[in-house]
């Protein structure tokens, strides 16, 4: 706790790396999210994955990448993000082409056309407790790219579970600017927020072995090509303030809603 206090004090006195690049500002090549058509599945199911990328200053290009898939080594418990432990790891390729019309017309930001199909091993539950089988065993897919001399590595968990009702991606997200559906780029001090459908509820076996019903907690990540936000992350329905000047050239606002269980929905708005 003392460490947290010191972090807080240092934030107060020294700021938070103000000269660092802002997490919400899009310019260099980034993978903003990995979207699965079904974030939760039964063992043996096939899942289709697509990357949502941004390469605003890339000018349109082809970026080849590799993939490797395996059972989660225990990343939540500190394991390194790799598949070195799993002899059954599956390798593949994933190429991003930002010259496609959809990407080019949207500041090189959008879903990559390539779709990676991943088969979750049918035997993923072997050796797992009934609690783990119910709460879910993760199968991870790691994507690696080398862009402008830098390595970009991103991974996604596909959750295999016998819970019964499987998680789906959030639906119905929309971005509002000063209370109305967004139609233009934000100006200084404009307020933005995301609304979406209600979160799902799901059963979970807790640490004491009891089954409890939990409700998803949505979280929104905000991105923009110009200016900045007062906070780059928000809750759904929480207002975020735009702090930059009004855009003088084509600009982009992206909001990504995550449901805390691997589900994701992306809203992309391009202006003018």
């Amino acid at each position: 706790m003392n460490k947290l206090f010191l972090i807080i004090i240092s934030l107060l006195f020294y700021g938070c790396g103000d000269d660092f690049k802002k997490v919400e500002v899009l310019s260099e090549f980034r993978v903003l999210s990995v979207v699965a058509n079904t974030p939760e599945v039964l063992p043996g199911a096939v899942v289709n994955l697509q990357l949502f990328v941004s390469d605003v200053k890339g000018g349109g290009r082809s970026i080849p990448g590799t993939t490797v898939s395996c059972i989660d080594p225990g990343i939540a418990f500190g394991a390194k993000v790799n598949c070195d432990h799993d002899p059954s790891a599956v390798t593949g390729t994933y190429d991003i082409d930002t010259t496609t019309p959809d990407m080019t017309s949207n500041l090189f930001t959008g879903l990559a056309a390539d779709v990676l199909s991943v088969t979750v091993p049918a035997g993923i539950f072997i050796g797992r407790s009934t609690t783990e089988q119910f709460n879910g065993v993760s199968y991870i897919v790691i994507f690696n790219f080398t862009v402008d001399g830098k390595t970009v590595s991103v991974f996604k968990r596909i959750v295999a579970t016998n819970r019964g009702t499987l998680n789906t991606n959030p639906l119905g997200s929309a971005v509002f600017l000063n209370g109305v559906a967004i139609t233009s780029a934000p100006a200084k001090d404009d307020n933005l927020k995301v609304t979406t459908n209600s979160p799902e509820t799901y059963d979970f076996i807790n640490a004491e072995g009891d089954t409890e019903t939990r409700t998803e907690v949505f979280q929104v990540a905000w991105f923009i090509t110009q200016g900045k936000f007062d906070k780059p992350k928000s809750d759904v329905d929480e207002t975020v303030k735009y702090l930059g000047d009004a855009a003088t050239e084509p600009s982009l606002v992206v909001s990504i809603v995550r449901d805390d269980r691997g589900g994701v929905q992306i809203v992309r708005e391009v202006f003018p």
Binding site: S33, V81, I142, S153, K156, K233, R258
Partner: peptide, 15 residues
């Protein structure tokens, strides 16, 4: 030396 982007939790895990 680097970081892996955790797409589900929207956070980078340091290497």
């Amino acid at each position: 030396t680097g970081a892996n982007f955790d797409s589900d939790n929207d956070v980078y895990i340091p290497i």
